[in-house]
C-alpha cells in the first residue's frame, strides 16, 4: 500500500532537495485567495489542495490565467465547493501563472526488479501520449543526467525555441540530481511526479508535485 502527500506537502518535501518551485500561498477562503494573488502578482493559477488528490487537471480542479481579484474569488469558491470528502482538501493553492511554451516532466519511479529510478521527459498533458522519457537507476551522477537529456527524442526542445532561450541544462541536471538524492535518502519514497516542469525564460520551474510514499503504518 502507499499514500500520497498533498501538493503542498509534496512541494515542501521536494524543496528540501533543491527542486525549484514557483512561490505559492494556501488560501482557505476566497478572500485569502484574492489577497494572496495580489501579493504574488497577476495572472495566477488556483488549484484545490488535499492529501487525496491526484490528476487534478482531469477533474477540473485547476484554474489557469486568473487576472484579477474577482476571478480569484470565484475560482476559490468553486474549487472548495467541488472538493469531495476523500480529497481531504486543505484549501486552494494560489501561485503565479508561470508561462513557457515548453513543458517537461521529471520524477522518480520504483521498478519491481530495478528499484528506484530517475525519470525525465517531455511533460504536460500529452506526456503519456508522447511517451518521450529517459530512465536511469538511482543514484545517478551529473553525467548520467546530461545523457538522459541527450537521449530524449525531442531533445531539440531543449535548445532555443520560439523566441525563448535554450533551457539551462545545468538547472535541469540539478533537478534530476535532487530527485536522485531524495530517492537514496528516503527508503519509503515510491514515486515523485513533477509535471509539468515549465521552462520559463530558459529555467525549469515545477508548478505541481505529487509524492507517493510506501505506507509504513500498515498493521503487521
Amino acid at each position: 500500500m502507499s499514500r500520497t502527500l498533498s501538493e503542498a506537502e509534496s512541494k515542501a518535501f521536494l524543496s528540501a532537495h533543491g527542486i525549484p518551485f514557483a512561490p505559492e500561498r494556501l488560501a482557505a477562503t476566497p478572500d485569502e485567495g484574492a489577497a494572496a494573488a495580489t501579493e504574488l502578482g497577476f495572472p495566477v493559477v488556483a488549484k484545490l489542495c488535499g492529501d487525496g488528490i491526484a490528476h487534478k487537471t482531469e477533474r477540473g480542479l485547476v484554474r489557469l490565467g486568473l487576472t484579477d481579484e474577482a476571478a480569484v474569488r470565484v475560482a476559490v469558491g468553486e474549487l472548495l465547493g467541488a472538493a469531495m470528502p476523500q480529497d481531504d482538501a486543505t484549501g486552494v493553492l494560489i501561485a503565479p501563472m508561470i508561462s513557457g511554451t515548453r513543458e517537461l516532466l521529471a520524477g522518480l519511479a520504483t521498478d519491481e526488479q530495478f528499484g528506484p529510478t530517475v525519470v525525465v521527459g517531455i511533460g504536460g498533458v500529452l506526456a503519456e501520449a508522447v511517451a518521450d522519457v529517459a530512465v536511469r537507476l538511482a543514484p545517478i551522477e551529473a553525467l548520467d543526467a546530461e545523457e538522459m537529456l541527450e537521449q530524449l527524442q525531442h531533445r531539440e526542445l531543449l535548445g532555443p525555441f520560439r523566441g525563448e532561450p535554450a533551457v539551462e541544462r545545468g538547472l535541469l541536471v540539478d533537478v534530476l540530481l535532487g530527485l536522485s538524492a531524495a530517492a537514496t535518502t528516503n527508503a519509503d519514497l515510491l514515486s515523485v511526479d513533477l509535471n509539468p516542469l515549465i521552462v520559463h525564460d530558459g529555467r525549469p520551474v515545477a508548478v505541481d508535485a505529487l509524492v507517493e510514499l510506501a505506507d509504513t503504518q500498515v498493521a503487521p
Binding site: 502507499s2 500520497t4 491526484a54 516532466l105 521529471a106 520524477g107 522518480l108 519511479a109 520504483t110 521498478d111 529510478t117 525519470v119 521527459g121 511533460g123 506526456a127 503519456e128 511517451a131 522519457v133 530512465v135 515510491l190 514515486s191 515523485v192 511526479d193 513533477l194 509535471n195 505529487l210 507517493e212
Partner: peptide
Amino acid sequence: ASHTGSLA
C-alpha cells in the same frame, strides 16, 4: 499513481 511511474 503518477505519470512518471507509468512512463518508466
